[in-house]
């Protein structure tokens, strides 16, 4: 029995070491450094000051950036949520052949294993002023001059987010839906539920854990993003991470750390709120 326990600890040691060195300690240090002082040319100066936080919270730009990030988050959440739900619903309840369903599911997930940056860049020849959409619109005579807000705009940012992150919704919702006993749907139909009634009263409540899990992914991905906003908005929009980005350019690690701590707290608060709303743990632990 004792050797069993020893073995267990031996088995988790590598995982523990990686998490300790590359997650726990770094996060702790970010917190510590956020109270340090920054001095030009010297860099980090150990201290215990709230200056970085005060700087951050008294700067109206921070609020503007967070507002912009939250706006993106909510819009993307709504679009990916609706899209993810119906794509998963289609795959689980409308595709009858299991192999076909798995195949189509894989089609949805394959992009996850390819480069985000490449997939983002690939929108350029589509959305640009000389891109595919504008060329088509011009040639069909629908517009007189190219639509400029397709690329380097909030629209482009949202398109890229939806493109990159919808599968983070599809996968957990698909998993939750696949576990729903089909007899439950029949029982609801027996009781007189309409097609919409079945979705609303049975499928949606039973997919809640999947939706919540997907939402946590999308929130953290959008809020933590700095490259999609930078590339797709052409520098016109900022995000919460833009501040960190700028501080890092000036090697101001303490303020970047303070900024990161604030971002982390907000992300964790939202994640906790979602976990509160829906008990996702049983989904994860199973």
């Amino acid at each position: 029995m004792k050797s069993n326990r020893l073995l267990t600890y031996l088995q988790v040691t590598p995982l523990f070491l990686v998490l300790l060195l590359f997650v726990i300690v770094p996060l702790a240090l970010v917190l510590i450094v956020s109270f340090f002082r920054y001095q030009m040319l010297v860099g980090l100066v150990p201290d215990f000051t709230f200056k970085n936080y005060i700087d951050l919270l008294s700067n109206p730009t921070s609020y503007k950036l967070y507002f912009s990030t939250i706006k993106f988050t909510l819009i993307v959440l709504a679009i990916t949520g609706v899209l993810g739900f119906w794509v998963a619903y289609f795959l689980v309840f409308h595709v009858r052949n299991l192999l076909v369903a798995i195949g189509l599911f894989l089609v949805c997930t394959v992009p996850f294993w390819t480069s985000n940056i490449i997939r983002m860049i690939s929108w350029r020849p589509v959305l640009g002023t000389e891109g595919l959409i504008n060329t088509a619109l011009l040639e069909s005579g629908l517009v007189g001059e190219p639509i400029s807000w397709l690329l380097f705009s909030d629209f482009a940012v949202i398109v890229a987010y939806v493109h990159l992150f919808t599968l983070f919704m599809i996968v957990p919702i698909f998993n939750a839906m696949a576990r729903i006993d089909k007899a439950l749907l029949e029982a609801a139909v027996d009781a007189g539920a309409t097609r919409w009634g079945v979705v609303w009263n049975v499928v949606l409540p039973l997919s809640k854990t999947g939706i919540a899990l997907g939402a946590v992914f999308v929130v953290t991905l959008v809020m933590g993003d700095f490259f999609v906003v930078a590339v797709m908005s052409g520098g016109l929009s900022g995000s919460a991470t833009s501040g960190i980005f700028n501080d890092l350019q000036f090697l101001n690690y303490p303020r970047a750390a303070a900024n990161a701590v604030v971002l982390l707290i907000i992300v964790l608060l939202i994640a906790t709120a979602i976990f509160r709303l829906v008990d996702v743990r049983k989904e994860l632990v199973r």
Binding site: D181, A183, L184, E186, A187, A188, V189, D190, A191, G192
Partner: peptide, 20 residues
């Protein structure tokens, strides 16, 4: 006809009670 219009009620093998 829809199930509910038939005046039938079904008891499922797994009972199909709504878990939520």
């Amino acid at each position: 006809l829809k199930p509910v219009q038939r005046g039938t009620a079904m008891m499922f093998q797994s009972y199909a009670l709504f878990p939520h």
